[in-house]
Simulated scan of single mutants.
Amino acid sequence: MSTVAKLLARKERLLAQLESDPGANEREEIERLLAQIETALSLLEPGNAAPSEE
């Protein structure tokens, strides 16, 4: 399983947890983890790769 696929699967699990109406502290933790996943996904997108210096 690729890194992107793993991140997307984790994101889906976290979103499902959010739908189950978690407590305030758990909600904050889930939202923090989702933000980290979004950042990682954006960095892994092909268009966001740092240009190579030649």
Rank of each mutant, 00 (worst) to 15 (best):
S42D: 09
A24W: 05
I37G: 03
Q36E: 12
A35R: 14
E45W: 06
S2H: 10
L8Y: 07
E53N: 00
A16R: 15
A9K: 15
A16N: 12
A5N: 11
R27W: 02
K11C: 05
S42G: 00
A5W: 03
N25Q: 10
A5P: 03
S52N: 08
A5G: 08
Q36D: 11
V4I: 13
A16T: 15
E19F: 03
K11E: 13
E54D: 09
N25E: 14
L33I: 07
L34N: 12
E12P: 04
Q17G: 03
N25T: 13
Q17N: 11
E53T: 04
S52T: 08
M1L: 06
L44V: 03
L43C: 07
E29Y: 09
L8R: 15
L43A: 09
A50H: 06
A5F: 07
A40Q: 15
E53K: 00
R13A: 13
K6H: 06
E26G: 05
L8C: 08
E53W: 02
D21G: 10
P51A: 02
E38P: 01
L44D: 05
A9Y: 11
I37P: 08
L14Y: 04
S20G: 06
I30W: 07
E38A: 15
E38D: 14
E19C: 04
L7C: 00
E53H: 00
I37Y: 02
L33W: 02
L44F: 03
R32S: 11
L14Q: 05
L44S: 08
Q17I: 01
E26R: 15
Q17E: 14
E26L: 15
R10N: 11
G47L: 00
A35M: 09
A9M: 11
T39E: 12
S20D: 11
A40W: 01
L8I: 10
E38K: 11
A40I: 00
E19D: 12
L44Y: 01
E31C: 09
A35Q: 14
A9F: 13
A24G: 07
Q36G: 13
S52K: 00
I30Q: 07
E28K: 15
L44E: 04
I37K: 02
L33S: 13
P51T: 03
R10G: 09
K11Q: 15
A24Y: 09
P51Q: 05
L15F: 06
E31L: 13
L41P: 09
G47E: 06
A49D: 00
R10W: 01
K6Y: 07
P46C: 01
S2K: 02
R10F: 00
L33P: 04
E54H: 01
E54F: 02
L7D: 03
L15H: 10
A16Q: 14
Q36R: 08
N25S: 13
L7G: 02
L15K: 14
P22L: 05
